[in-house]
Design a protein around this nucleic acid. Structure first.
Lengths: 181, 181
DNA sequence: CCACAAATGTCTATTAATCAACAGATTGGC
DNA sequence: GCCAATCTGTTGATTAATAGACATTTGTGG
């Protein structure tokens, strides 16, 4: 892709995140973003409909970064190393993810994360428990919701516990559940 | 001026200075600069004839920064605060100025600096010593050359002495000379 | 010494970003 | 409420940067 597009988009989201931190979503104007990014105001409109679209794009890309940084192309959940990688990565970039969650009124973050986690959990559950369709699906839904719930809580309430503690407790619950059979 | 020009030029000189530090002037290629700056190679040619022009531009702009940071619009030399400001600024950005001097085969740095220092010294000397034309000019030339020589030595040999020591010694010499009359 | 890779300098067509101007919508203070 | 200032969303003309291609030059290793 054209370098200019990549650079401009990066500048916009950097400016947006900076402003999100400084004054909160509601007070952000397109003008602000253009000024902060040092680009023409019209250029912002070439890339995004409005600031809601920018917020959405941010969530998208940061969820993407989280996933690709923690399990590039492989199964994400139900492996202890993967859990650990996720909590560690979140810990290192906590300010960003906290900011996103706090300003995410539509629960987009969880929904986007769920899309990937769900499909990969399905596969993992398919391998581990030999159950008929309905019961496997219940396992899956329970695991996914539990996992996402803990992630959400951990980000919002850090430092309620360390990444290691979160990993250990979460993983032990998952293994107990998948061993019920 | 168009933002794009400013940004691109900044990216080029940043890349150039980084490469100057990493591999030295001779080994730098236009290709390198384009890669490092993450811009198209052709774009470099839109702004500069060759890498010598970039080097020249760097010296120009860093001499400019030095001057405007130390005496914005006023007389530069023959005031203690000005001396102090110059040495302090140089000290804070020593890596850059050292790099420039070490790679300045044409003595451009001194020449460019001289242009400003000379004209302002002339004025200062005109006020301080009541001499006829020729003798005032000798005062001026002596002061300018001495000043530039100390600056050059100080940058190349830091930390031979602190900014404060350099300021004090240089200023005491200047005051003794201008008091000869 | 030759071959092959990399860098150069230049070009064209295309695209993204710019500025400036606009009328209409919001907002905050008096 | 109203005025002024700001922000919005869009436009059109212009300019800078892009990718890609090209023939040429440089320079390094076999």
């Amino acid at each position: 892709m054209d370098r200019r597009i990549i650079k401009t988009r990066k500048e916009i989201i950097n400016a947006f995140m900076k402003l999100l931190k400084k004054k909160g979503f509601e007070k952000i104007t397109i003008q602000d973003i253009a000024d902060e990014a040092d680009i023409n105001r019209g250029t912002v409109y070439l890339h995004f409909e409005d600031k809601y679209a920018i917020m959405d794009y941010c969530i998208d890309s940061y969820v993407g970064k989280l996933l690709e940084n923690c399990a590039p192309g492989e199964e994400i959940v139900l492996k202890k190393e993967a859990f650990n990688a996720i909590f560690n990565y979140l810990g290192e970039n906590l300010d960003i993810y906290k900011l996103l969650l706090e300003n995410d009124k539509n629960n987009s973050f969880n929904q986007k994360l769920k899309a990937t986690v769900e499909s990969q959990t399905e596969m993992a559950v398919g391998h581990m428990v030999k159950s008929d369709g309905a019961s496997a699906e219940i396992y899956t839904q329970f695991l996914v919701a539990g996992f996402l719930g803990v992630i959400d809580w951990w980000i919002r309430n850090y430092p309620a516990c360390t990444a290691e503690e979160a990993t250990d407790i979460l993983f032990s619950m998952v293994t107990h559940i998948t061993a019920i059979e």
